[in-house]
Design a protein around this nucleic acid. Structure first.
Lengths: 236, 236
DNA sequence: GAGTGGTCTAGACCACCTG
DNA sequence: AGGTGGTCTAGACCACTCG
């Protein structure tokens, strides 16, 4: 598994993040990239589409691919990514505090996404974490995963604190799709306490569903975000 | 301008919305579509990518492209679309109430997006509207457009109530990119009144910037959304 | 006019899913 | 085993931007 377009995409991303290409710079043309990386222009275009989707560049007809300014104080595009990956790319100090370590329990009723029979009848791995940026709690994340062929998951530590990395390395799970659902709600007392806010403070509530390469093994997350200092988006 | 992939994408979308393909149905395979529409598979894939992005289908390796269930009570993917288009696709009853008809004024200071010199020195076309779904106000939208070569814009009526359609048909403006920024905030008294809510109710605040095919002509919108009954997202 | 990205063709091999 | 989508190649023509 080392796809050419992903390799090129990661190459360019690294160069942008390391400052080789700066805001406003033009990337090499698609023709140049295709020659220097020995791939066709279609493959280059696939890589550049990915970068555009992630908010690193902007493609301009007749001109080229422009590197885009990175906004501080934005948590990143809502995309097929985990929290750790999003914020470490922004070079923010990131911490995760585990409130409830992984346990097997029954599914909450009602659950925020409809579950299929196989998911329902399997148990549910649950964990709850606080995400901090620059030492401030900004996000409260409750995660639910069907307990389908994940032996010993609750006993092991998360690799580098990342759920996705752990699932990938230990169990070969890869994220394939994401869907999301957004609302604004008032903070309940418990959540407010965790986020060091007053109850009733408006929070961004995001329900996420990550599909994976394993059928029925979907990852569900409920995120409560304090958007006072860090907004969510792909502001360019 | 009639691109083959766009034509195919629209074709399939119409068939899905009209019920020819229902939730869970498989679309014809990429090979079949390429033969029946006399285009290559790459072109078919471009069209299907668009439909996937818009949340109409889900592509499954080895299986096919599955038509996805439409959730009621979701306002639609945040995408390169106007409000009118999003909700009419969902077959909801949609109304727009113009609070402040288009006028030329100076830019608010500070403005929520950085403006370039040409935008700043041009005037600013401003309008404010309430969006209703099923006769309930759900969204308060303030729109700002640089007054760059849009003769008579403030005097004319909007075509079918759609800002994008008006800009497109009368001035040849097409949307090319979108960026967005999300926060949760408490409703101020004025906004609360318009949305028939109590002040302090949590609202989803979305800043949008639409880039167009005309340089410097960007469309800026500030949206306040009541997400109590209609959430925002691409829940599948 | 030279270079760019946008679109499109006509093939190919692969991994994955299902019967 | 046969069909599906995922990836990739090697070309082509176009509209657009810029000097």
């Amino acid at each position: 598994m080392d796809l050419k377009y992903r390799a090129l995409q990661q190459d360019l991303k690294t160069q942008i993040l390391s400052g080789i290409y700066r805001e406003g710079d033009l990337l090499p043309s698609e023709k140049d990239l295709s020659e220097s990386h020995r791939v066709t222009r279609n493959t280059v275009r696939q890589a550049l589409s990915g970068l555009e989707q992630e908010g690193y560049i902007r493609k301009m007809k007749g001109k080229g691919s422009i590197v885009i300014r990175h906004h501080k104080h934005t948590l990143g595009v809502l995309s097929v990514k985990g929290f750790t990956e999003i914020l470490s790319e922004k070079k923010l100090n990131v911490e995760t505090i585990v409130l409830d370590p992984p346990v097997i329990r029954s599914w909450p009723v009602p659950f925020f996404y409809p579950l299929d029979d196989i998911e329902s009848s399997a148990g549910c791995v649950y964990l709850k974490r606080i995400r901090c940026a620059e030492h401030n709690p900004v996000m409260l994340e409750s995660t639910y995963i069907p307990d389908l062929n994940l032996p010993g998951f609750c006993k092991k530590k998360l690799i580098e604190g990342s759920l996705f990395k752990t699932l990938n390395i230990n169990y070969g799970v890869e994220i394939t799709h994401t869907s999301q659902d957004l609302r604004a709600i008032a903070a309940d007392p418990e959540s407010a306490g965790h986020l060091r806010l007053s109850p009733g403070t408006p929070l961004l509530h995001i329900y996420l569903r990550f599909s994976t390469n394993r059928e029925h093994l979907n990852i569900y997350s409920s995120l409560l975000c304090n958007t006072e200092n860090y907004s969510i988006g792909n502001k360019l």
